[in-house]
Design a protein around this nucleic acid. Structure first.
Lengths: 147, 147
DNA sequence: CTAGGTGCAAACTATTTGCAGGCGG
DNA sequence: CCGCCTGCAAATAGTTTGCACCTAG
């Protein structure tokens, strides 16, 4: 994504185009990988001079709110916040596929609703209102390295 | 589950049959609902006299290790530990269906592997190594109440 | 200019650990 | 009576908040 497009998105979410926001957004969008607040902080602090960890938390949250990022749950560290860029259309329900080797994130569209909801209702009587699917895997690059 | 059966499971996991462990296990098994450490603590403290919150954390962890409980992720409070009794066979891969009304937990067997893994591999090249599915819904009892 | 952004310090929350004393087998 | 169990206090880790100063628009 271009800086211009990014700036437009920030503006339409009433967020000023600041050095820190642009840097965080750039890093997340360009890497296509998961990152924790602490990881973002240590990656950007050298380049930005002073950078507060609380600012990183705030910015990641704002960018998520703005639809640029998404929260990722890593089963091995559920309690730690983790984000990834997500440029997929929000209206199109989808899931994230996370490489346990490098943190790379891919989007897969969702077949869960169609396939499972009626089956679950029939068997348990539960009316399904939502679901969270997080798929772990090894991306092609990491797979090649490993073998 | 009977107290005898419970005691056997504790013993086979090299855990002594103590008042606290039995009380926590009983509460979780009998309710069939999710509970956080703090909830377990406030429910049992009156009955047990002194009970340390750290003990509750330790016991919930041990019972999970012993296969009596399972960790539940609630999307609305991901960072807080939460457990539920899970008597389903571990070898039989399954998912948990959590009622957002009352915390009741049901088991649904897993159709994800069969249905999705090959599709994902074909489309993205990722080799799927694991997945977490948490389904939220409204149980029949809560549904009736609501309407 | 002025509202929003940011660094820093400090507060908070949930969780974990160390250890002295207690209790089950 | 030995070694696991537990309460308590304190430490930790991650996250959030308050506030004075700064900067984009």
């Amino acid at each position: 994504m271009t800086d211009e497009r990014l700036a437009v998105i920030l503006r339409s979410n009433r967020l000023k185009k600041t050095t820190r926001r642009m840097a965080v957004a750039r890093m997340m969008l360009d890497s296509g990988r998961t990152a924790t607040p602490a990881q973002v902080w240590s990656a950007l602090r050298p380049k930005l001079g002073r950078l507060g960890l609380p600012s990183v938390y705030r910015i990641l949250e704002e960018l998520t709110e703005a639809g640029l990022l998404t929260r990722i749950v890593r089963p091995e560290a559920e309690s730690e916040l983790c984000y990834a860029a997500c440029t997929a259309d929000r209206k199109h329900h989808h899931h994230h596929l996370v490489c346990t080797g490098c943190g790379r994130v891919e989007v897969v569209d969702c077949s869960f609703r169609r396939l499972e909801e009626s089956r679950i209702r029939r068997r348990t009587g539960f009316k399904v209102t939502g679901h969270t699917i997080q798929v772990q895997g090894i991306c092609p690059a990491c797979g090649d390295k490993g073998n």
